[in-house]
Structures are given as structure tokens and as C-alpha cells.
Simulated assay, not measured.
Amino acid sequence: MDPTAVEGTDALDPDLRESLDAPADAPAEGIDVRDAPAPKPLTRTLETLESLPAETVLLQRNDRVPVHLFDRLDERGYRYETLERDGEALTAIRRE
């Protein structure tokens, strides 16, 4: 298993998905970029999104709200919602 992957249970947790306005029935993938130096979280997230099927929700776990990512997501037509909890930021990203 990829050591930077978000635990599958987090990516599939229905309560977390509801909090992040992510469809409960959509497939999900997760990445953990908490320890990655800038700009790796941004580039890794965008690269991962490009490789995912359109219906898949990406759950990014970061140590901060990824504000520099948001403009890039807007430009590419993605919806996103971020939840801060327990000293980290969880962002669900999906195509509109």
C-alpha cells in the first residue's frame, strides 16, 4: 500500500463524505500530502485528479487548508469542500 494514501475507511466514511458534500455512492480515492514540501501537495493532487475517472471523488489530507490549490481546481471545473479537524484539513474534490 502507498504510505501516503489516505486510509480507505476515511475515503469511504459516509459521515465524512456528507460533511464534505461528497456523493456517498461515488467511488473514492485518497491521498495524504501532510508531510510533502511545497509545491508537492498541489502538483501531486492535480496529477492524481488527472488520472482518476470522472466520477471518482478525491479526498486530500493535508496539514493546512490548500488555498493555492483552489484557483487551479476552479480553472479545471472541479468542486471542492474542505473540513478542518484534529489539526488537519480534509478536502473532497470532484468534477462538476
Rank of each mutant, 00 (worst) to 15 (best):
D2I: 00
D2T: 03
P3Q: 04
P3L: 05
T4I: 06
T4P: 01
G8S: 09
G8Y: 01
T9H: 04
D10R: 11
D10E: 11
A11Y: 09
A11D: 05
D13G: 03
P14F: 07
D15G: 10
D15Q: 09
L16Q: 10
R17C: 09
S19C: 09
S19F: 06
S19T: 09
L20V: 12
L20C: 13
P23A: 11
P23R: 10
A24G: 15
A24N: 14
A24I: 15
D25A: 14
A26K: 12
P27C: 11
E29F: 13
I31H: 03
D32Y: 03
R34I: 08
D35T: 13
A36K: 08
A36Y: 07
P37M: 11
A38Q: 11
A38E: 13
A38R: 07
A38T: 08
P39F: 00
L42F: 03
L42P: 06
L42S: 11
T43M: 09
T43R: 08
R44N: 07
R44D: 11
T45L: 06
L46C: 07
E47Y: 01
E47M: 06
L49S: 04
S51F: 00
S51P: 02
L52C: 05
P53W: 00
P53V: 02
A54M: 03
E55P: 00
T56R: 10
T56N: 06
V57G: 02
V57Q: 05
V57N: 06
L58G: 04
L59Q: 06
L59N: 02
L59M: 09
Q60N: 05
Q60G: 00
Q60A: 10
R61T: 03
R61C: 03
R61F: 04
N62L: 04
N62F: 06
D63I: 02
D63H: 10
R64V: 02
P66R: 01
P66W: 04
V67G: 09
H68W: 02
H68L: 04
L69S: 01
L69H: 05
F70W: 03
F70G: 00
D71V: 02
D71P: 12
D71M: 04
R72S: 14
R72P: 01
L73P: 06
D74H: 08
D74C: 01
E75G: 10
E75T: 01
E75S: 10
R76Q: 14
R76F: 06
G77A: 08
G77M: 02
Y78F: 15
Y78E: 12
R79N: 10
R79A: 15
Y80F: 15
T82E: 05
T82H: 04
L83S: 12
L83Q: 13
L83G: 12
R85I: 12
R85V: 15
R85N: 14
D86G: 15
G87E: 03
G87H: 09
E88H: 06
L90N: 13
T91I: 15
T91M: 14
T91Q: 11
A92M: 09
A92P: 10
A92W: 13
I93P: 00
R94C: 13
R94T: 14
R94V: 12
R95M: 12
E96T: 13
